[in-house]
Structure formats: structure tokens, C-alpha cells
Amino acid sequence: MKQLINISALLAGLIISQHALALPDDLSKPLTIQSNEAFLDQKTGIATYKGDVFVKQGSIEIQAQFLKVTTDPKTRKFSKLVATGKPAKFSQQIDWNGNMMISRGEQINYEVTSSTLDISGNAYLNRMDDKITADHILYHIDTGTFNAKKQGSGRVSMTLQPADDKKEK
């Protein structure tokens, strides 16, 4: 059964990945963070934000109740953002046509260097009207592929839209 779920996720990922995957200049934009509280330790490169956190970087937007940002103190490059909330939300424009990838979960780990989203706790991902729900979703932004799984009882649920023949001609 678990193998069937992984194969289904792989097939869905292949169907989804035939589209553009993300805007290339998002990570070159400044990271703007708003919150009710903020703490920064410049020696460790770790910053925490609490209360109505809103993040914007290019087309990327994150909403959460708590956010931890890890930055390399020497290069000042962001390497990881961990957002938690009920739910935490992450969205990004995935192509120049304005199509979006929207996700939510109780915790979202955004690994900047590997371009992955690790969504857990009532995880949800909507990409170009294809929808996936599971307890845990690991989404690879650069390739548009994912691995979704339920923990305990339950199932992974996917809704995949058929290809639009009109758009492909």
C-alpha cells in the first residue's frame, strides 16, 4: 500500500512538473519580515519572530505565528526558514503567467539551499489546481516533484487536473 502511495505521488509529480517551477529571481530579492516581536543573534545568525508573522521575498509569501530564520553569519545568506502556526502558509508564483503554488501546514520548513518545502501537520499543497493533502509533504520547488505520506491511519488524497489540450496547441 505504501509503495502504491509513493508511486502515485511520483506520477502526480511528473504530471505537475511539466510546467514552469518557480520565478528565478525570487531569492535575489530582499527578505522583508513583519511581526509583533523579533529577536536576532548576529553571532549565530538565528532570528526569531513571534505573532502575526508576514514574510515577503519576491513572489514568495509566508504567514505564521512563529518564524525562525537561520542565516550564515559570514555570508549573510538565508539557509532555512521554519514557520509554525495553525496553519502556517507558504505561497510562490511559479511562472510568468501568474500561476501559484500554495501550501499550508502546522509547520513548514523551507530549505533555501536545497529549494525544498517540508510541510507537516495537516499538510496541503495546491499547484496549478492540482491538490495534495497528507500528514506530511516534501515538495522540491526546483523540480516540482513531491513525496506525500500519511502517518498512522488515513490516506494521501490527490486531485489532479487533466491537461488542457487548448493550452498545449
Rank of each mutant, 00 (worst) to 15 (best):
Q18Y: 03
T71M: 11
K166F: 06
N147W: 01
P30H: 03
K166G: 01
L81C: 08
F78T: 14
T32K: 13
T145N: 13
D129H: 09
N126K: 15
E37H: 13
G45H: 08
A64M: 05
A88C: 09
S114Q: 12
P73E: 03
L81H: 10
T133S: 11
K169N: 15
K29D: 14
N36T: 13
N147R: 14
T145Q: 15
I60V: 13
A134T: 02
Q93Y: 04
Q57A: 15
M100E: 09
T48M: 02
T84V: 11
I108P: 01
I16L: 12
G51I: 12
V69I: 10
K169H: 14
N147Y: 05
F90I: 14
K167Q: 13
F66N: 04
T133I: 09
S8V: 06
I141G: 08
M128I: 07
Q92V: 06
I108C: 02
D72V: 09
G98W: 07
S79N: 11
K74C: 01
D142Y: 01
T32E: 14
R76E: 06
G51C: 08
N36C: 01
A134M: 10
S115V: 00
V53D: 09
E37G: 07
M101T: 05
P24A: 12
K131C: 03
E61M: 08
F39C: 00
T145H: 12
Q151L: 15
L160A: 03
G58V: 10
G152H: 14
F39E: 04
M1K: 06
I108Q: 03
K43H: 09
W96D: 05
V82P: 04
Q93F: 00
P24V: 13
T145P: 01
V156R: 07
P73M: 10
A88I: 05
Q151K: 12
P162L: 03
L67F: 05
V112F: 06
L138Y: 10
K86P: 01
S17C: 02
D52E: 15
K131R: 12
S157N: 10
D130P: 12
M158W: 01
A123M: 00
G144I: 11
S35N: 05
K56R: 12
I102Y: 01
G85K: 04
I102R: 07
W96G: 04
G144T: 09
L4K: 13
K2V: 03
M1A: 15
S8K: 04
K77P: 00
A20G: 09
A163H: 10
Q63S: 13
A134G: 15
V112Y: 06
I16N: 14
A38C: 00
D129T: 13
Q3N: 14
R76C: 04
L4Y: 09
L81D: 10
S153I: 11
G45Q: 11
A64S: 15
Q151T: 12
R127H: 10
I60A: 13
L160N: 02
L67H: 10
R104I: 02
A123G: 03
T70Y: 04
S59D: 07
V156A: 08
F54M: 08
M158T: 02
G105D: 03
P30R: 06
I7H: 10
L11A: 09
I60K: 05
D118K: 07
A47I: 07
T143V: 05
L31S: 06
K86F: 08
L14P: 00
F90P: 09
G144D: 11
A148G: 15
E37M: 08
L31Q: 09
Q151A: 03
